[in-house]
Design a protein around this nucleic acid. Structure first.
Lengths: 157, 157
DNA sequence: TATTGTTATACTCTATAACTATA
DNA sequence: TATAGTTATAGAGTATAACAATA
């Protein structure tokens, strides 16, 4: 294998892990009538006082034009609500309604329970190793290139 | 943190890694006028003699109804071609055309080169550690639960 | 002038179910 | 009867650009 493709196996594994996890969690999400994007929003807003479109878009990687549609549908379902920001009148705060909170508390634990079963046999060391390697990976990826120093001996985040 | 949520950090990291990687590779993919699903097909067909819809659907997790549309658009662009299977006349083989092969050889190396830069400072040990943890993760996820034995001392695949 | 969010457009993906032709 | 792929439907996500209100 050419050295330029050395990382491909990792990326393939990464993609397969995500696909697999989403396939498992997707059942619970869809059972509540939520799409993946909608669940992303609910999960992002859960346990917060709300945030602006800008923040929501940055966290979920949904562009503003698309976000309006997703929020519209969630608002129509009565799961989120818009409120004008006091500081900046161009801006809206989006937050979960009482119903939205309820959905969050129902769906999220189901996904958590499913994940808990998957990871039932992971030890503290297994988790630590997984987090350490993923944290390093995340850092180089989000930097768009290698970091100044890659210290593999301690936790990065 | 409740023990039931111990794995959430890993999943968040996993999702962020994939998001970050797709954000980087997405540029190259879109620059060639391909969508993510279309690139999946091109990448899956690359370096193969072709495969049936069933196989393509299984590998890319695209359901058959959707797959017809994706293949239609790729065929319309002249990147793939259908050919009736000899063994089973219900079945089609899908393979890259010469143009499709060319696109594969153009786009894929660009994504590879981008990835190579990202992973430039990864050592052989870094790759081994990453693959080992991801392989274990993939196994428990695809099994939908814990594996019979989780042997963390050797490579799983 | 720049930014926040909306609207409009056009396309793609998605799941689902009914359909055909083969097996 | 069961399977491979198509078609039809309806909804949802996506990028993009033009736009209004505000900063």
């Amino acid at each position: 294998m050419p050295m330029g493709e050395r990382y491909l196996k990792s990326i393939r594994l990464l993609a397969e892990c995500i696909q697999g996890f989403e396939r498992l969690s997707g059942e619970h999400v869809r059972r509540c009538g939520l799409t993946h994007a909608q669940f992303d929003i609910i999960a992002t807003l859960g346990n917060t006082a709300g945030m602006t479109y800008k923040e929501l878009g940055d966290k979920t990687l949904i562009t503003k034009g698309t976000l309006t549609g997703v929020i519209d549908r969630l608002e129509h379902k009565g799961l989120v609500e818009r409120e004008r920001s006091v500081d900046d009148k161009r801006s809206y705060f989006i937050r979960l309604t009482a119903t939205g909170e309820q959905t969050f508390r129902e769906v999220f634990p189901q996904v958590i329970a499913m994940g808990s079963q998957v990871f039932a046999h992971y030890s503290e060391d297994d988790f630590a190793a997984l987090e350490h390697t993923l944290a390093g990976l995340k850092q180089v990826i989000s930097a768009g290139g290698p970091p100044p120093i890659l210290d593999t001996t301690k936790e990065i985040i």
